[in-house]
């Protein structure tokens, strides 16, 4: 069991579903992301990485969102239990 396995979203593998634990909320961009549904307890996963390595496409709530890795590093996540 690695239920204490905290990490940040930019370090997650493709298609690995994780749960958002905490948002390091330090600027207006993070507020915008939270308003768009990136909030604690939501499931999130990385679907694609752009050919040049950044940004990434994530699936959140019922839709797909593109964010930069720099912002993803502010999103603390934990692996879902059944994975």
């Amino acid at each position: 069991m690695d239920s204490f396995n905290f990490t940040t979203l930019d370090k997650i593998q493709l298609n690995q579903e994780v749960i958002i634990k905490k948002i390091h909320h330090n600027n207006s961009n993070m507020t915008r992301l939270m308003e768009m549904g990136i909030i604690p307890e939501e499931k999130i996963k990385i679907l694609q990485v752009a050919p040049l390595g950044d940004p990434i496409e994530v699936s959140i709530m019922e839709y797909k969102l593109c964010i930069r890795k720099k912002d993803a590093a502010n999103i603390e996540v934990i692996y879902a239990k059944n994975s």
Binding site: N27, S28, N29, R32, L33, M36, P55, E57, Y63, K64, L65, C66, I67, R68, K70, D71
Partner: peptide, 10 residues
């Protein structure tokens, strides 16, 4: 400083 890229992929 805070410019970033947040965009929905519809």
């Amino acid at each position: 400083p805070s410019i970033t890229f947040i965009m929905e992929l519809p």
